[in-house]
Design a protein around this nucleic acid. Structure first.
Lengths: 210, 210
DNA sequence: GGGCATCATTGATCCCCGTCAAACGCGGGC
DNA sequence: GCCCGCGTTTGACGGGGATCAATGATGCCC
């Protein structure tokens, strides 16, 4: 656990910890500035500060239960910008994160609000998936979302493991794997490699996601 | 579907539609003002505008699938303040909503950000519940949350139906009912009436929610 | 206050997905 | 290139919660 000025950011230990430090060492696109330590600008906003841009790989935002069960609430993909929108545990995957910009004073909320609203909208859609959709629908919705966020191409890269996908969709890795196989057998997708899929029948997949 | 200036607010038909109109007619705590139609203050923030305070009952924020499956992403209880944090469908339950305040210009994001961050945090916790907890844990977590938000008293009011609870927890009404019965039989709670519960063994309930 | 529509509870059954287990194959290291 | 480890796939099985159905309770309306 590490703290940078006002924002409280909890990082997972070991290798991932150094990755963020590297990110801080990397030349930022814009000068980096921090809140004066202890400043209280927003009742809840004080916990949110820096902006980050994912260079490659994926950033996982997750929560844990006491017994280790994990729920990934969001992935941030390469090229996407995110803030520490809440006092959530962020797990940085690989070293592909760079400090993007850090607005000062009153501007921060103007910068952060769109990110927070975007995150909120996605979370609401994600809740619908977890609360009301079955395994096939969940995986289909996930693949459609990933495809859209990568430009809508046929070829989609999955910069995360099956376990991550399962923890994102509220499924086990076995179920994720079985659904992939069923979609492949139906000719809806192809699996050129473990980390990449090709969407063959885009309409079918879209319909499956409801 | 109805639109007030910039914010896009979808309401359910009939009785609940008139309820918001009544809320607008009711004397607001502060003068009410709107964005000029078509103004674009924030990329995403434009969809968010007014602040509301719940007077009684509960406000349900939900999304629907094409076949009617519903997922309630949040309840806003009496006394709580909320904004239209995203372009989500809001369903106003009863007439217990009043226009609270409507900040102007640059202040809006400063007002709205804390609400959005609060909503985001709750959504992330909710995702953990829906993705990784079983029926008993979900109901226990729901009751603990409701109790905390009502001041931590033994007596907790449930200003929503079993169907609403089910659609919030990703369960059927039958399962919700069965879990209530099991908790009652175990002596963890009492059910003085349909819409109110008494928490007898608070620690046990808390442990059940993990 | 009685009647009735609606909501909630309880029961019986089914099935989707989790669990446990084993085999497979990809990728990294030498 | 070969080996080994770990992530992934596939299989067998069981259980938790959904579904279908019927009964019971609540509160609304006249």
């Amino acid at each position: 656990m590490q703290t940078y000025a006002a924002p409280r950011i909890a990082l997972s230990p070991s290798s991932t910890q150094s990755s963020l430090l590297e990110a801080f060492d990397a030349p930022p696109l814009q000068p980096v500035s921090f809140f004066p330590a202890g400043s209280e600008i927003y009742a809840q906003g004080e916990k949110a500060g820096a902006f980050y841009q994912v260079e490659f790989g994926a950033v996982r935002v997750y929560r844990l239960l006491a017994d280790g069960r994990r729920q990934i609430s969001a992935f941030h993909l390469a090229g996407e910008t995110f803030g520490f929108e809440a006092d959530t545990t962020h797990h940085i995957n690989a070293t592909g994160v760079r400090v993007f910009r850090f607005a000062t004073g009153a501007d921060i909320s103007r910068q952060l609000l769109p990110l927070a609203l975007k995150g909120l909208t996605r979370a609401q859609e994600h809740l619908l998936v977890l609360g009301r959709q079955n395994a096939i629908e969940r995986v289909a919705a996930f693949l459609v979302d990933m495809a859209e966020r990568q430009g809508g191409l046929r070829q989609v890269e999955l910069p995360m493991s099956r376990m991550d996908i399962g923890d994102y969709l509220g499924l086990t890795i076995e179920t994720v794997s079985r659904v992939f196989t069923r979609l492949k057998d139906k000719g809806v997708i192809r699996l050129p490699s473990l980390r990449s899929i090709e969407i063959v029948k885009h309409d079918t997949l879209h319909n499956m996601s409801e």
